[in-house]
């Protein structure tokens, strides 16, 4: 796998994504998601909200690096709360 030029942060990032997907699969098996409508004006399942949260987090990170000189970890911390909010109330 050396040709993939791995770094520790990207390995952690993909591990986190992998763990989230495994966790969501187990959660879905134990307690199947029921479609519902929250703040997002669409009926969404748990998986939909995860996707929306991850995609919007990516854009939040891009906007953050484009508009501020602060360390990107601030955006990551903000996105953690953002993800939780989307999953809970989205």
């Amino acid at each position: 796998m050396a040709w993939m030029s791995w770094t520790v942060p990207t390995a952690l990032f993909f591990s986190a994504i992998g763990l989230i997907l495994i966790g969501m699969t187990i959660w879905q098996t134990v307690s199947p998601s029921v479609e519902r409508q929250g703040v997002i004006p669409l009926p969404t399942t748990r998986g939909d909200r995860l996707f929306i949260g991850l995609l919007s987090s990516a854009f939040i990170h891009l906007a953050f690096v484009a508009s501020t000189e602060l360390h990107v970890a601030f955006a990551t911390v903000f996105c953690l709360f953002w993800m939780m909010a989307v999953m809970r109330w989205g």
């Binding site: 993939m4 030029s5 791995w6 770094t7 942060p9 990207t10 993909f14």
Partner: peptide, 13 residues
């Protein structure tokens, strides 16, 4: 997926 992961790795180096 694997090529995309490689691109992510490249993007930070």
């Amino acid at each position: 997926i694997i090529p995309l992961m490689t691109v992510v790795n490249y993007s930070v180096q």
